[in-house]
Amino acid sequence: MRYTKLSKIVNIIETNPIKKCKYCLVGTPDVGLVGTIALGYIINHQKMMEIGYIESETFPPVMVVHNGEPKTPVRLFNKNDTVVLVSEIPIDSNLIPHVAQSLIEWVQSKGVELIISLSGIAVQNRLEIEVPSVFGICSSASVQERIKNAGINLFEEGFIAGLHAIVMRECLKKKIPNVILLAQSHLQYPDPGAAASLISSLDKLIDLKVDIKKLLEQEDEIRLRMRELMQRTHQQMQQTQKGREQEIPPMYA
């Protein structure tokens, strides 16, 4: 086990240390739980291996139990050169900068080439949308070029809030390539349809080869089982000003 103390508050514990991480995918509970659903599905579909977790004395004292096995709620998975960070609890807004910093320093030490944050952008007319569109926010012109080549539209004006906003801020500082993929989504209902759109776009970007058929088949079941996490996350989002994401910023840079 390797113990990396990167921040006073948040630590990354590697239970199965890896040497290299080319892509890092990040999803924590927020808008429509889109990132959490998408990454949960990818982890299962790709049969990824659990390689570690994020620990903090300031996380709520909660363990999740899967098949009788207690687990920490914020965990790291890996397959080939891809690492996934997924959380089963909403991350408190005060902890977001610490989690972002620790994660970035850790993936940087593994030679990361691209950090991809997965989330949703709430749209009021979600019910009228058959297949949600995905938009990308990029840290540099070369990442923009990459998402354009993958057929993903640019997100041009708006606010972003939450973990992916701080990951972007830190990546800009450290010049680490980062893209935030946002799928059109319900704000406060779990949205597996939006998660499926995210996976399709991700596939075009890094060629993961994930079939979304089963995800869409289990849509109702996922919506039903994620009600409680959605309820808790919605409260958390009110703290991080998630609602502002639908606003247009007042100034142009």
Binding site: P60, R227, Q235
Partner: peptide, 22 residues
């Protein structure tokens, strides 16, 4: 504390065998 209030607030009713919707 809100986190725990919410965590402990069950979104189901065992007597009714019903779930609470969002």
């Amino acid at each position: 504390l809100d986190f725990f209030d919410e965590l402990s607030r069950e979104m189901w009713n065992l007597q009714r065998r019903s779930l609470e919707p969002l």
